[in-house]
Amino acid sequence: MKINHNLAVSESGFLFNPGTGESFTVNPIGAEIIAMLRNGKSRTEIIDSITQLYQVDRNSFEKDLQDFNGILKTYNLLEKDE
């Protein structure tokens, strides 16, 4: 998972794609994940970090992350090769 490098991300979870003009909002966990993706964290590192910080079992979060990845892909928010 590599986030589109052009994407403007604010701390409030507001995302703006300057290439298409589309904007989105994500919840605090979504914003945290996107921040980690922007910092180059791998999928495993994100799973480790979130499951340590919050009360969520690894399997559930892996599934949620997969769903989130699908949404990011649908809206062209990931780099093209993803």
Partner: peptide, 8 residues
């Protein structure tokens, strides 16, 4: 309403 974009 509209927004300026950077579309090469």
């Amino acid at each position: 309403a509209g927004i300026s974009i950077d579309d090469k």
